[in-house]
Amino acid sequence: MGKTECTLSMSKVSLKDFFGKDMATRDAYGHILVELGKNNPHIVVLDADLSCSTKTALFAKNFPERFFNMGIAEQDMMGTAAGLALSGKIPFASTFAIFATGRAWEQIRQTICYSNANVKIVATHGGITVGEDGATHQALEDVALMRVIPTMTVIVPADAYETAQCIVSASEYYGPVYIRLGRAKVPSILPEEYNFKIGKAYIFKMGKEVNIIANGIMLAEALKASEILNKDGISTGVINFSTVKPLDEESLLEIAKSSKLIITAEEHSVIGGLGSAVSEFLSENYPVKIKRIGVKDTFGCSGSWKELLKHYGLTAENIVKVVRENLK
């Protein structure tokens, strides 16, 4: 396993470069992929004519012989990625989240997951922060679509530092992984000592009354909301659930035991995503009042991403409002 160790130590050096950076998670992806490519000759990358947007173009420039542009053909891309994986490569397949998970869902289920092919699907442009392109390009269902498939791991990182770490982790884990990234520039959130582990939640602070379980872009909003609520004397915690599957059930139980109210916050439909996963587990194992914040069973629309977050209630202000309305 000499190669893996080498990858680990070299990546650790470069991972620190991503700490404290305000940048889009897709940009972090583009850069860490190049680092991975340098350290592991088995890394190959596929894209479906969106390499400039998904940032895989950086890898393509550095390792043209290991980059495959598949054209606008997501289904073929997923199948080809499976074949590459079955020949011993570690393929990263990228496109927009809606096309990766929607257009090619059955290829992911039948060919990748049912064969347990070692494919990493890293989709960018998840959620409504795609902005002006509107509903056709805003994936609000991708986490649900991936979560339902057996063997699939689903990760929604919050910032550049976490993205870089989860990409490295995915490359070292054997099996299909879905990682959802965003288009918009996001603030640095996670502390320097943060160490991403697949399936492990990260507790910023445990609240005694309210706990906000969030991932992706909503983690920053959750932290802002908790500040306001704590100032108001409502003991509020924040937990990063970047891995939606496998769900960190142990942490979830611990959180539930410390909560009068749990809020889930995600840039996704309230159906099928993080809020659903948390609700499913807790309703069966430790029922606590839960309110899910997300997009309410509707399509997105055009607008600037900041306006859209407000429009759909994906803000710290709305989290605070929901907490006040639901905390007796």
Binding site: M77, T80, G83, L86, T111, A117
Partner: peptide
């Protein structure tokens, strides 16, 4: 069995991926 199949239309893509991987190797 190299890969699970049954849903039609998907095998040729996998074969392509295998062929690309073998060439790289």
């Amino acid at each position: 069995i190299e890969v699970s199949t049954g849903s039609l239309g998907q095998g040729l893509s996998v074969a392509n991926g295998l062929a690309l991987g073998l060439k790289l190797n």
